[in-house]
């Protein structure tokens, strides 16, 4: 990346047809960070998720909002594929999720929580979604 360059990425799964919303969000997450998404509902049902990212050479700023329940996991396989060298710091604005970080303790996270995630370690999170 060019020094000083600022890259902007926006994703809104409401834009594609319902049948491919889940797939488009899955592709986006997998391409960015290797995270694998799972849902109880069929993949061809609507799934609303929005992301807005700004990226410089040293950091990525991301606003992420999911409106329906889903699970996300970072497996050893995904870690190897993504080859990430980043630490994620989150600030939760609304909604809750249950997360198992660093291969062990499960924690509930909600508004005002500020978890940190090492994206070179496997983890799982069950997001309950939030209404805008």
């Amino acid at each position: 990346m060019r020094k000083g360059a600022l890259t902007f990425i926006q994703l809104d799964t409401a834009l594609p047809p319902d049948k491919v919303q889940s797939l488009s969000s899955c592709d986006s997450k997998a391409e960015d960070v290797g995270i694998e998404l799972e849902r109880d509902a069929p993949w061809n049902t609507p799934f609303q998720l929005t992301r807005r990212c700004l990226q410089t050479g040293k950091l990525i700023l991301d606003r992420f909002q999911a409106h329906l329940q889903y699970r996300a996991s970072m497996t050893e396989k995904a870690i190897a594929r993504a080859n990430l060298n980043v630490i994620e710091m989150q600030f939760c604005v609304s909604g809750t999720n249950e997360a198992a970080l660093f291969g062990g303790n499960t924690q509930m996270r909600g508004p005002q929580d500020m978890p940190m995630i090492d994206l070179e370690c496997s983890f799982m999170t069950a997001d309950k979604g939030v209404m805008a």
Binding site: K58, I60, R63, N85, V93, R109, D127
Partner: peptide
């Protein structure tokens, strides 16, 4: 869930 994240380069942090 709605959240904001910062992804920082590990080498940069260290």
């Amino acid at each position: 869930m709605s959240n904001y994240s910062v992804f920082l380069n590990r080498t940069y942090i260290l």
